[in-house]
């Protein structure tokens, strides 16, 4: 693909650590192309990541990169953005990283509407630790910590984000890298908290256990189930996966693959500009400075 700029990659750090068939590389490449496309200067870009397979992406990107602790990437990024408001900050996280251990930081970053671009690579599983269920593992799917299938219901990240106050939310997939790139560009252009959920594949720790076939099968499946939000009729359908289809599909043939289980609404799910936090903070700061200058002199009285 033409727009992949090599200077944005640390090619000497390749090959990457990801397994064959992993979707992380596709998402990372889409991110790199998006940054090139939107025209940010290299020195103005910072990539912050948490812990997990997806978060290793930061190490391969030739920007200022901060690989933090599990779940806390958004909190680190909040400090960084406040200290250097000129930076364009991308925060790469996995599903467990962003919504389980980092769930609190996620909703509060959204609530503040701080100008961060959260890229959540959702492969429905904790991959690095070998396949435990995450808050985004679909109900009923198997994991090492849910051998009979998880009883827990999954989050809908974008519904969560919109309720918490995020101002841009989009869903793309590793099966449609061009669209994903476009959505990340959209996130970069939004002044406020943006979330891009990138549906991805973990054939090793998720696919195999749930008999979803090869990496290619999994990508094909994602692609088949993806429906552009513009084609979905009502707004409710764009944010909530359609369970009814899943149930119908399962009854029909008793297939173990469950391929037709859900429609994946892709595209810009919501975009609703609102005042951005850091900009407001600094605007207030300048006002405060002007107001307090007189007072400051008084306080600084000096005695020898």
């Amino acid at each position: 693909m033409k727009s992949l700029r090599e200077e944005f990659l640390r090619t000497n750090k390749l090959p990457h650590i990801w397994c064959p068939g992993c979707g992380n590389g596709i998402v990372t490449a889409a991110l790199v192309r998006a940054i090139g496309k939107v025209g940010f200067e290299q020195k103005d870009v910072a990539v912050v990541s948490g812990i997990g397979c997806s978060s290793r992406a930061a190490g391969y990107l030739n920007f200022n990169t901060l690989h933090t602790t599990h779940g806390r990437a958004l909190a680190f990024a909040t400090g960084l953005k406040l200290a250097q408001p000129g930076l364009k900050v991308f925060v790469v996280m996995g599903d467990g990283d962003a919504t389980a251990i980092g769930g609190n930081h996620f909703i509060h970053a959204a609530r503040r509407n701080i100008d961060l671009n959260a890229i959540i690579i959702n492969n429905h599983i904790y991959g690095m630790t070998g396949g435990q269920h995450s808050p985004l593992t679909p109900e009923g799917k198997k994991a090492t910590t849910a051998p009979e299938g998880t009883l827990e219901r999954e989050f809908n990240i974008l519904e969560l984000a919109v309720s918490a106050g995020a101002t841009y939310g989009a869903r793309g997939t590793a099966a449609q890298p061009r669209l994903l790139e476009k959505l990340i560009v959209g996130a970069s252009q939004n002044e406020g908290f943006s979330v891009v959920e990138a549906m991805s594949t973990c054939p090793v720790s998720y696919g195999r256990r749930n008999r979803l076939g090869s990496a290619v099968d999994m990508l094909k499946d994602i692609k088949q189930r993806s429906v552009s939000v513009e084609k979905l009729e009502t707004k409710a359908e764009t944010t909530r996966p359609r369970r009814d289809i899943a149930e119908e599909g399962a009854e029909e043939e008793g297939e173990t693959h469950d391929k037709q289980e859900e429609v994946i609404p892709v595209g810009v799910i919501f975009s609703r500009p609102a005042p951005e936090f850091v900009e407001r903070y600094y605007r207030g700061l300048n006002k405060e400075k002007e107001g307090k200058e007189g007072k400051e002199e008084k306080e600084g009285q000096v005695e020898s």
Partner: peptide
């Protein structure tokens, strides 16, 4: 900034230090 929890407070402080 008042953060959402103690952990975030520590994280933000490190983030800001990285920002100089």
């Amino acid at each position: 900034i008042q953060m959402e929890d103690e952990i975030a407070g520590m994280a933000a402080v490190i983030g800001a230090a990285v920002g100089g």
